[in-house]
Simulated assay, not measured.
Amino acid sequence: MTRYDPHDKVWSPPMPFLFQRQNGTVPAVFNIGTIQKMIERRCLALAEVHPGFKGLKFTPHDFRRIFITELVNSGLPIHIGAALLGHLNVQTTRGYVAVFDEDVIRHYLEHLEHRRQIRPTDEYRDTTSDEWTEFEEHFDRRKVELGSCGRPYGTPCQHEHACIRCPMLHVNPKMLTRLAELEADLLNRRTRAEAEGKAGETEGIDLTLTFLRAKREETQRRARRPAVDLGIPKPRTDPSTRETL
Rank of each mutant, 00 (worst) to 15 (best):
T128A: 01
W132M: 11
K143P: 02
Q117C: 00
Q117H: 05
Y124D: 03
F135K: 03
Q117I: 10
T128D: 00
Y124A: 08
Q117E: 10
S129N: 03
W132Q: 08
E145Q: 06
Y124M: 04
E137P: 03
R119N: 09
R125E: 06
T128H: 01
R116F: 11
R119H: 02
R119Y: 04
D140A: 12
Q117L: 04
D130G: 01
R116L: 11
I118K: 03
T133S: 09
H114S: 14
R125N: 04
T133H: 12
R116T: 04
P120I: 01
L146N: 07
R115H: 06
E136S: 01
V144I: 12
D140S: 15
R115K: 08
F139L: 10
R142W: 11
Q117P: 00
D130Y: 10
R116H: 08
R125K: 13
T133I: 12
R119T: 09
E145T: 03
E136F: 01
F135P: 07
S129G: 09
R115Y: 04
R116E: 10
Q117A: 10
R119K: 13
V144L: 12
R142D: 14
F135M: 11
T133D: 12
D122Y: 09
D126C: 15
T128K: 01
Q117S: 14
R115A: 02
Y124Q: 08
R142C: 15
Y124G: 06
T127V: 11
T133R: 11
R115N: 06
W132F: 05
I118G: 00
R116M: 11
T127C: 08
E145G: 05
E131L: 00
D122L: 08
H114L: 07
H114Y: 11
D130K: 15
E131T: 03
R125V: 11
